[in-house]
Structures are given as C-alpha cells and as structure tokens.
C-alpha cells in the first residue's frame, strides 16, 4: 500500500501538483525521512523541500514533527507554517 502525499501553498506550487501517491522503501519510516526521500526525487521536489525550517507536516490530518512515524496507508501533508485568521 502506498503513502498519499499532499502539498499546500508554495510547496504545492514548487512540486507542481497538489498530491501524489508514493511507495518509498521500507526504511523510510518517519516524516523527516519521507521529506528527504521526496526531496531527492527531482528538481521540483528539491525546490519544495529546500528550506526544511519552513516546512511543516501533518500525518492523517494531525500536525506532526519530523520524528513522527509514517507507514503505508497514511496520508502525509507538507506545507508552510499556517497563516489563517
């Protein structure tokens, strides 16, 4: 089973798509490892993840930090710090 990855705001613009389904190797088991693996895919992903300090994440729609576990079947979102209100 794959991981569903969503992108929002300028991460979406830089990656060039709002979401994708990915199947990383089994040793990719945290948010941080997934981000690094995605960043190595191509230039667009590299640009999106170029500033790790500006990238936030959610796993299954809950905010998560880089050490949070991810597994096949999860929905993982990457986005900039939120600016609503």
């Amino acid at each position: 089973m794959a991981i569903r990855v969503l992108y929002f705001a300028w991460l979406r613009e830089r990656v060039g798509m709002p979401e994708e389904s990915v199947a990383p190797p089994p040793d990719i088991a945290t948010v941080g490892a997934l981000a690094d693996w995605l960043a190595a895919r191509d230039a667009a992903h590299a640009a999106a993840f170029a500033e790790p300090g500006c990238v936030r994440a959610a796993v299954n729609q809950d905010f998560a930090d880089r050490s949070a576990p991810v597994a096949p079947g999860d929905e993982v979102a990457f986005f900039p710090p939120v600016t609503g209100g």
Binding site: F8, A9, F63, F79, V82, T83, G84, G85
Partner: peptide, 27 residues
C-alpha cells in the same frame, strides 16, 4: 479563538498587492 486559529488551523494566505506583486504571507 483568534490567536489559536492563526497558529493551529491549516489555512494559507496568498496576497496580490496593488502593484501586481504576488506573495505567500509568512507566519
């Protein structure tokens, strides 16, 4: 409510200024 909404709800603002420049609002 409004303080929490600004930091804990996943919204993002992009603004276009009167001169035409577009930018994502930074936290």
């Amino acid at each position: 409510l409004i303080d929490w909404l600004k930091t804990d709800a996943p919204f993002w603002k992009k603004e276009r200024l009167e001169g035409g420049e577009e930018r994502w609002v930074e936290a």
